[in-house]
Design a protein around this nucleic acid. Structure first.
Lengths: 188, 188, 188, 188
DNA sequence: GATGAATGAGGTTTCATTCAT
DNA sequence: TATGAATGAAACCTCATTCAT
């Protein structure tokens, strides 16, 4: 048989795509992505049928990695506050460790290239996170608001933290904690 | 050279740019923007020296319009809660009335085409909004967090409201109010 | 107003296309066609929306020119033999004067890029030629065959003449005449 | 290097090439040809040194098959009319049974990929057919025309029959016969 | 000033061919 | 021998920008 398709090369393309897109947006050229991966442009198309396909797969990869991190040591048995704090903290740690990944994730979320099917697929993976969010939406000020709002609010507040952290990188850890306390005011 | 004869034509380009960019992203072509404005491609370059220039001017225009709305009936004499509620409500009304404008605003914010100089320029225009935000950052849970956080948090929470409103358009007015109450929990 | 679209440039593209396609087939590249026309590749796309469009327009141009030649001094009042001879002769003269045009015409006829709509459009232009062919199909050996056969047979025999003429260029004129006599045997 | 192990695989490539080329022209990709053959892309190049080589071999194959059919029950002892009729009929039967083969044959004939050497080689195989054609060219209206004309004319007229038959598939058998009578008018 | 034709660099993708397995 | 991943040169086409009119 011939050479097998190498997972390393696939990853090289995805990682290069993250770097390029973080720098220049979704308009990053396939030529540059391939060059950044140290592979030929044509090779990219044996791993991804089109640039759109690459982008969709990248979206899946990034979301999956995020959920993987959050669900790794998830405190299923703890109270809601603890579980919410875990989600809050793990997501922010990932986002701060991998700012390019996060930026690309945001861009992909906003763009039309990620198909509804792909989004649907990822929504199904949320598991314990979704459960905690449902509980959260029945508490405090969230009670009066539509069910999905608590989840959107948490994500939005995390955005605010990210933005802040970019300006004050030294205080990251404390910032994450104290911002959670602020967020939790809404759920009390 | 930018800023030429007819202000109407300038506006036509900016409005067409909003429509096109809302649909296809910042990659919208100058040809389509001009066509949408009912004017010639070349004409665009007598009003804006380059596409990047157009984008920067558009950013200014959108931000200016937002602040204009917020500052129009600003309750300078009222208490902080009332002023914060005004900012909250007016921004959300604008955003909901002009979803394309808002989407483009978000895209421009994320993109590298808007220069640091342009961003700086707009920050200076915030006036009474900035003042209210400073006060806000000294209250409640925001006290423990860096100065700019309250402002970021408000914007972030507004994002969450927008997202929600897109799904439940009927409940907009109530949603705006109740979400403000949730937000205010953090400032109490 | 801006520069008008120049018919000369349009013709330059079509003529270059004829030369290129005659040499390398319908796979002739847009880059080479443009280069051959002494114009930029991008310019081609202001005259033709795509390569397929160029090919369709070329087909129309070639067919139109052929019919124009044939119908120019058409002996409408003469007997069938005379009219048939005119069609025979004029077509062959054109084809021999413009061997590249003819070759491209044949290639386009065989290919799928020429749309049914385009073919239909050209069929409508045949006028006096079609009338003569109908008459011919009711004579001699053609009587026993389906209506369109006489026309196909004439075109086919002309092909044979072309092929021969390519090998014996000196005897063209005589060849055309004597081959018509052979063809006419079938109609007697 | 061409001509390797399995004749079955070689045939699979050639047959797949016929199918693909009949559909999309000589631009048919080696990838699709290989896929259609149920074999790997690379394998093709152990049987044929290049795509051009494949095309040349295909040309040889198709011509050989045609002559094989015609020469199989060739009535060497019969009069010219009978022999001409045999060539006429057998060729048309083959062409109608194998429309894809015929279409590919035509495309290859027109294209520059078939080398002069290959064409020469096949001309040598015509044997009894060539002999009949020489006799034919000395008769009737063909007498006045160059030697090769009778042969070209027969092939051309067969084209016309094919075209007709495609439109009236029911009358094939009769069409072949009556068209031969028309053709023979020129030889009488 | 207004127009849109002209431009050529650069975009995504296909393809014949090579070569590691 | 058979495979199909790897390659990079081209393919078609789009685009921001210039400039003749």
């Amino acid at each position: 048989m011939a050479r097998a398709k190498s997972p390393e090369k696939r990853q090289a393309f995805l990682q290069s795509a993250v770097r390029e897109i973080a720098q220049v947006g979704l308009g990053a050229s396939t030529a540059n992505i391939a060059k950044g991966a140290g592979l030929a442009e044509g090779t990219m198309f044996t791993y991804f049928s089109s640039k759109d396909d690459l982008l969709n797969e990248l979206y899946v990869e990034l979301k999956t990695e995020t959920y993987r991190r959050i669900l790794a040591d998830f405190p299923h048995q703890s109270g809601l506050r603890e579980r919410a704090r875990h989600i809050w903290t793990e997501y922010l740690r990932w986002a701060m460790e991998k700012p390019e990944e996060r930026k690309v994730s945001v861009l992909l979320n906003l763009s039309a290239v990620v198909s509804a099917a792909t989004r649907e697929r990822m929504n199904a993976e949320r598991g314990a996170v979704a459960k905690a969010m449902v509980e959260l939406s029945k508490r405090g000020a969230f009670k009066a608001l539509p069910p999905g709002f608590a989840s959107s609010a948490m994500m939005a507040m995390q955005e605010a933290v990210m933005e802040m952290a970019a300006k004050k990188p030294r205080q990251k850890v404390l910032l994450i904690e104290q911002a959670f306390d602020a967020f939790w005011q809404m759920a009390k």
